[in-house]
Amino acid sequence: MEKKNSKTEITRKEALQRMGKYAALTAVGTFLILNPKKAHASSLPADPGGDGWPAP
């Protein structure tokens, strides 16, 4: 006897709505992980104490 999986089948519109929600959550999570202000604050300067000119 076959069972119908009518609950597991969704329409194209419902699938796009679900993917939109996942995309939004992914964007927020990525922004929180890769926050530019925190990344900049934790990075070291390229040459501490140097004036940018090579030594003679």
Rank of each mutant, 00 (worst) to 15 (best):
M1F: 10
E2Y: 05
E2W: 08
K3M: 00
K3Y: 11
K4L: 11
N5V: 02
N5M: 11
S6H: 06
K7A: 12
K7Q: 10
T8V: 04
T8D: 13
T8N: 08
E9P: 01
E9F: 03
E9S: 11
I10S: 10
I10V: 10
I10N: 04
T11R: 00
R12Y: 09
E14R: 00
E14F: 01
L16G: 01
L16W: 05
Q17H: 06
Q17F: 03
R18H: 05
M19W: 04
G20V: 03
G20P: 00
K21Q: 10
K21N: 04
Y22E: 15
Y22N: 13
A23F: 04
A23H: 05
L25V: 14
L25I: 12
T26R: 06
T26Y: 07
T26N: 09
T26W: 08
T26M: 13
V28Q: 12
V28T: 06
V28S: 05
V28Y: 04
G29W: 01
G29S: 09
T30G: 04
T30Y: 13
T30N: 07
F31K: 10
I33A: 10
I33D: 06
P36A: 05
K37V: 08
K38G: 02
K38E: 13
A39C: 13
A39R: 12
A39G: 08
H40Y: 11
A41I: 05
S42E: 14
S43W: 03
S43F: 00
L44I: 08
A46Q: 09
A46Y: 02
P48H: 02
P48D: 10
G49N: 05
G49P: 02
D51N: 14
D51Y: 03
G52T: 09
W53E: 15
W53N: 15
P54H: 02
A55S: 08
P56G: 08
P56I: 06
